[in-house]
Design a protein around this nucleic acid. Sequence first.
DNA 1: CATTATTTAATTGTGCACAACTATTAATTG
DNA 2: CAATTAATAGTTGTGCACAATTAAATAATG
Lengths: 165, 165
Amino acid sequence: MGNDEFLKLDNQLCFVLYACSRGLIRTYRPLLADLDITYPQYLVMLVLWEQDGVSVKALGDRLFLDSGTLTPLLKRMASSGLIARKRSATDERRVNIFLTAKGKALKQRAYAVPQTLLCHSGLTAEAFMGLKSDLESLLARIRTFDPEKDVCAGVSAAPSSRKQS
Amino acid sequence: MGNDEFLKLDNQLCFVLYACSRGLIRTYRPLLADLDITYPQYLVMLVLWEQDGVSVKALGDRLFLDSGTLTPLLKRMASSGLIARKRSATDERRVNIFLTAKGKALKQRAYAVPQTLLCHSGLTAEAFMGLKSDLESLLARIRTFDPEKDVCAGVSAAPSSRKQS
DNA sequence: CATTATTTAATTGTGCACAACTATTAATTG
DNA sequence: CAATTAATAGTTGTGCACAATTAAATAATG
């Protein structure tokens, strides 16, 4: 009976994380609409403003997105004139992404975005940093988790069914 | 120049939230695949296991999803035999969602999911509760934010351009 | 009671996410 | 150097998200 507690929606960390993520992105939406970009496109711009000319692969590693997501997204950004996609001369497999003048210029209008968001979040700088740090730890943990040596496999099974190596 | 710090990817709370949310859902995926459901479908099941027969509207209020997302999702769940969609007799606008026998039975196999996830997250019960609580506060704040009385509007503009009522 | 406004779901269209697969190029190895 | 393997993008197909619109039913109002 006490097991039912674990299945209640309000006891799910993942749900509040999922709801928070979508809620924050919803808060960004009108600000980014002024810049004519979506939230994932904004993330691509953040990477490019730090380092122009990165490959699709490097972008994917940074944003945890694969080519199935990035290829069409980058094509949309190219057709709206923010970036240019250029096949690498030294490695023909690579496609490098470069900011256009329009893409570089957009940065000026983006400076206001993070500060407006911080204000909307109602967080102090300390709370902001603390929460970000906690989430970074969680992210690192779930991304390095190795299913091969899964300590959790039998965690909710009957004790007798646990397989010890 | 110091403004550039605010536009760095690694300084974005929303990005780590977005990455964490997708990372956790990725961790759920193989477990839920065993139950033949996706993560959003799992959330619907959590609501229905708590309260059978809710309307699409009530589901949407609970999960922060609209009919554009829920209608096709619920149709898929109906065709896979987990739920039944029934037009309400007392209010013909409403569609109420009921668990089938198969849907009710699935709960037994779902008990293991939250505990496996908790283990994968590597969080203590205290850290889990603390993080969930912090995210709930943030969610409440951004969901009740009223753009009409936006204190943040001029937050990054020049001080002289601030409009006081 | 007829009209208007509101509520509720469904529909349409766009843009992600991601798994599975293909094609091309580069690196490795016998 | 030829054959194999690995790396990189692209393609295809499915399932969300969400804005905007439509349609139907109910509630509110003059």
